[in-house]
Design a protein around this nucleic acid. Structure first.
Length: 898
RNA sequence: GGGCGGAUAGCUCAGUUGGGAGAGCACAGCCCUUACAAGGCUGGGGUCACAGGUUCGAGCCCUGUUCCGCCUACCA
């Protein structure tokens, strides 16, 4: 016999190990079965599992297990991302502890170090995914720096370059002075801050007069090469072309006219710092202004900054403000709210910085990717995200892909140092090729130097759906599993990753990388705040699984995963679902206790002598199975989970199990065996339905069921639940007649219980009940009187269409029947009168509402007949109920008076 | 600045073609009834943010307002 309660420890490890051993999660690259494939959003190798992963993994595992059981050739392809900047930062930090920098080590040794780190710690998150029960095909695990994936990266780079979609040039990019690298626009997080707007006076070089400019970064004036005004601005029309003297440095700079300048903002005059601001960069190009770099990659001031040379940018700001003040050139300082960009990896304020970088010309790729979604080739769920997707795609700017770090895919570009002939010079000595060249293909020189930079990590993850399946080779995996079925991820990487995968998929595979994109919610803390280490409000998934079991945790996540709304997670919530798991466990215990040695369990179709309760639960089972399947089909995880919760707990346990207890304990062997088979069957199917959500406890319990349970008609029973055919409506037996009869039985039971409950009568007190109903109902109730007497705890029941209300009886009026419970001396007349009065008030409200509707001619004329009829019927019913209650009250009052 | 989402029971949230609103938790009362006290039974509790409009009828459709999130943007 199984234990009194479920202990997840041990069970989880046992089954996960066994599933792996039997190779259930392994996909077949040459199967006739329809394929179903998900590629995992590869977590960073540096990462450790957080609750967002847990949700992501749980939802994917639900889909994959469901499809696997439903007969698909299923591949869930796992892996990790090398996470260039993040990983490099981690290892650099370790070096720093020992007083070393990566430069001290040198490139090669440093990279070796990172690999060592990766081998040692990179598996951590994979191990954690396994603890969640992820049914990935681990034989296909990939890493973005794998040999194969690296080939794909080079291939893509070279092809895009050949087509002119990758180019190199000097532009203003986002520079992180701490990570010492360029960042793409996406990698900059904007944060609104209360800053200051400094109004600074620039005097004319000759003669009197001045112009006042406004800036938030006064230190950049050291690199100014002009002041711009709008040529249409009356205030400044006449000064265009004049020469100003740059404050502090005294360098002479012109006033230029440029329509970019907003007349209404600040003073209407803008200082132009071409090497340190993207807009100024463009203005400078239009007016042929010089570019002066005043900062180094460390954000320290250069020689060009004169007296400020060597100062940190923010120190310099302070100094320059002081100096301007002293010189009387600081006109005004205003409070000013504006956005400031921060590095998404280290949160340092990024600096717009002029440098030579590689870019992807993104428009053509974005257009195809947008079209794929517009045409429905890729469907985004929930659809609301499509707007953001289109918006981003339409306003997209070229993608800076080079990073000045060492950990990553080295850019497959070599520079010829000699440029010995014309051709080589024409190409600027640039050699772009997948294989490292020995000598220059243009001039034959052997002095080739590879580009020092590596590619943006997201460049390689953009290829993930096909690079992991073997591209650029033409593999069976690619043919079988591409396009993949669905991508499940959070919205935070919609642009970073999802959009770019669609671009690259369309470009290199000519097909969408996935048919569906399911965007799930963000997991927040109980009060709705984003979880973060600094806030200290993170919930550790592993702690949850340790305390409550993986199944409880997974079910909680699924039950709260409603589309389009964030999940507020709290420990309180997981407790409720832990109780649910325990409820399932105990239902199993009940069943197992009641199976005797010689009992033969037969399949639902073979059971003879089905009782009403059996037929009812089988019918409900059928509906539930159908609804769970259709919910999953539409990614309505919460609906599926809640449906099962409701069914298993409140229909199966609360009603069905109670209904069959007398049968299982009774002496009618035929009946007993019928219900026993039925209860085993329904439970077995329920375990199947639940398995994708809570794989461990279901597998464990399933193994305890008699071997004949869950046996398909044709073949033998599978060895494990995780490969059982996923239940469908056909696993139950639809019987609407049984459902409506059961409804009457339940009505009778609840009516009596209600009287008992509200009058505070002890559950152990057996009551006498009289039920009045229509002939038809009377017939049904009489045939099932044993159910009622058992569940309502009655000593005797009288049912008839002309049953009279006895004196001193409590009354319960229900839609299809009236119940009287004689309680002479057992209860307080006054409290029963109060109860009935409360009831009467409610009914009166309803009556007057419907009355109002029915007396409205327009309603009667315009509303559909069915609706009108329904209202009329309801009115009749309520009216009858009202009469009954009123007379009840009346009689009780008489009783009280005598 | 642009865009998106949310506002429903004390709390967290469902509510899929518009026909007088549901769940879980919490709360109250009665129960250790031989699967389960991590349980059973019963009950209380809501002008569905606000104001208009469409309609016989609105939580649901339209317009506006307020509050709260998020995404996005080069206004110095």
């Amino acid at each position: 016999m199984i234990d009194k309660s479920f202990d997840p420890k041990g069970v989880e490890e046992k089954w996960y190990g066994l599933w792996l051993e039997k190779g259930y999660f392994q996909a077949d690259s040459k199967s006739d079965k329809p394929s179903y494939c998900i590629v995992i959003p590869p977590p960073n190798v540096t990462g450790s599992l957080h609750i967002g992963h847990a949700l992501d993994i749980t939802l994917q595992d639900i889909m994959v297990r469901w499809k696997r059981m439903s007969g698909f050739n299923t591949l869930w392809l796992p892996g990790t991302d090398h996470a260039g900047i993040a990983t490099q930062n981690v290892v650099e930090k370790e070096l720093k502890v020992r007083g070393m920098s990566r430069q001290d080590l040198g490139r090669e040794a440093f990279i070796k170090k990172v690999w060592e780190w990766k081998e040692q710690y990179g598996g951590r998150i994979i191990h954690q995914l396994k603890r969640l029960g992820a049914s990935c095909d681990w034989s296909r695990e990939r890493f973005t720096l794998d040999e194969g994936l690296s080939r794909a990266v080079k291939e893509v780079f070279v092809r895009l370059h050949k087509e002119g979609l990758i180019y190199r040039g000097d532009y203003i990019i986002n520079w992180c002075p701490r990570c010492h690298t360029a960042l793409s626009d996406l990698e900059v997080e904007h944060e609104e801050v209360k800053g200051r707007l400094y109004h600074i006076r620039y005097n004319f070089a000759k003669g009197d007069g001045h112009v006042v400019v406004a800036t938030t970064r006064p230190e950049t004036l050291l690199g100014d090469t002009a002041v711009a005004v709008n040529p249409n601005d009356k205030r400044y029309k006449n000064i265009v072309g004049k020469v100003l003297s740059l404050p502090v440095l005294g360098r002479e700079i012109p006033v230029v006219g440029d329509e970019f300048v907003d007349v209404g903002f600040g003073t209407g005059a803008v200082k132009v710092t071409p090497a340190h601001d993207p807009n100024d960069f463009e203005i400078a190009q239009r007016h042929n202004l010089p570019f002066i770099k005043i900062m180094t990659g460390d954000a320290k001031m250069t020689d060009e900054a004169g007296p400020y040379k060597g100062q940190d940018r923010f120190k310099c700001r302070e100094h320059i403000i002081r100096d301007l003040k002293t010189a009387g050139l600081l006109v005004e300082v205003k409070d000013h709210k504006h956005g400031i960009g921060h590095c998404y990896r280290c949160k340092t304020v990024v600096e717009p910085y002029l440098s030579k970088q590689w870019f992807v010309k993104i428009k053509p790729l974005a257009e195809d990717a947008a079209r794929a979604v517009r045409k429905g080739t890729v469907k985004i769920i929930p659809q609301g995200w499509e707007n953001s997707y289109f918006d981003w795609m339409e306003n997209i700017k070229d993608w800076c892909i080079s990073r000045q770090i060492w950990w990553g895919h080295r850019i497959p570009v070599w520079y010829c140092s000699d440029m010995k002939n014309r051709e080589c010079k024409d190409q600027n000595g640039i050699v772009v090729t997948t294989a490292a060249p020995e000598d220059c293909p243009y001039c034959g020189s052997r002095n080739l130097v590879q580009d020092e930079d590596v590619l943006d990590t997201w460049f390689s993850s953009a290829l993930w759906p096909f690079s992991t399946l073997g591209w650029p080779d033409d593999t069976d995996d690619l043919r079988t599993f591409y396009p993949t079925s669905v991508l499940i991820t959070g919205f935070d990487i919609l642009f970073f990753w999802v959009a770019r995968m669609i671009m690259m998929g369309m470009k290199f595979m000519d097909r969408e990388p996935f048919r569906h994109v399911y965007i799930h919610a963000l997991v927040r803390d109980a009060t709705g705040h984003k979880m973060s280490k600094s806030k200290g409000n993170v919930v550790d998934p592993l702690e949850m699984t340790d305390t409550y079991g993986t199944d409880s945790f997974r079910f909680t996540l699924a039950a709260f995963a409603a589309q389009g709304r964030d999940i507020k997670f709290s420990v309180k919530r997981i407790e409720g679902y832990r109780n649910f798991i325990n409820k399932i466990w105990n239902a199993a215990r009940f069943i197992l206790v009641n199976i005797k040695a010689n009992d033969e369990i037969v399949s639902a179709a073979e059971i003879k002598n089905l009782s009403l309760a059996d037929r009812w639960i089988l019918s409900r089972l059928s509906s539930v199975a159908a609804e769970v399947n259709s919910s999953l089909e539409e990614y309505r995880f919460n609906d599926a989970a809640n449906l099962l919760y409701q069914f298993v707990w409140h229909e199966f346990c609360d009603w069905y199990v109670e209904l069959i207890k007398p049968v299982l304990y009774g002496s009618d062997e035929d009946r007993r065996r019928a219900s026993l088979s039925a209860v085993v069957h329904v439970f077995e199917v329920s375990l199947g339905l639940l398995h994708p959500f809570i794989p461990f406890v279901t597998e464990e319990l399933w193994q305890h069921l008699p071997a004949s349970a869950g046996k398909p008609a044709t073949a033998g029973r599978p060895e494990n639940l995780c490969v059982r055919a996923y239940p469908t409506a056909a696993d139950g037996i639809v019987d609407k007649n049984a459902e409506s009869k059961m409804a009457l039985v339940k009505e009778a039971v609840m009516g009596v219980r209600s009287i008992r409950g509200e009058l505070n009568l002890s559950p152990s007190l057996e009551l006498k009940a009289l039920i009045r109903a229509s002939d038809e109902t009377v017939d049904v109730l009489n045939k099932n009187i044993s159910y009622i007497s058992k569940l309502a705890k009655t000593s005797s029941i009288e049912i008839g269409c002309d049953v009279m209300r006895p004196e001193g009886a409590a009354v319960s009026v229900n839609p299809s029947l009236e119940i009287f419970v004689p309680l002479k001396g057992l209860f307080d007349v006054e409290s029963e009168i109060r109860r009935l009065n409360r009831e009467a008030v409610k009914i009166e409200e309803s009556l007057s509402f419907i009355q109002k509707k029915l007396s409205n001619e327009e309603f009667v004329n315009k509303a559909p007949k069915a609706v009108v009829d329904e209202n009329e019927a309801k009115y009749e019913e309520l009216n009858k109920k009202m009469q009954s209650i009123l007379s009840g009250i009346d009689k009780l009052k008489q009783l009280g008076n005598t």
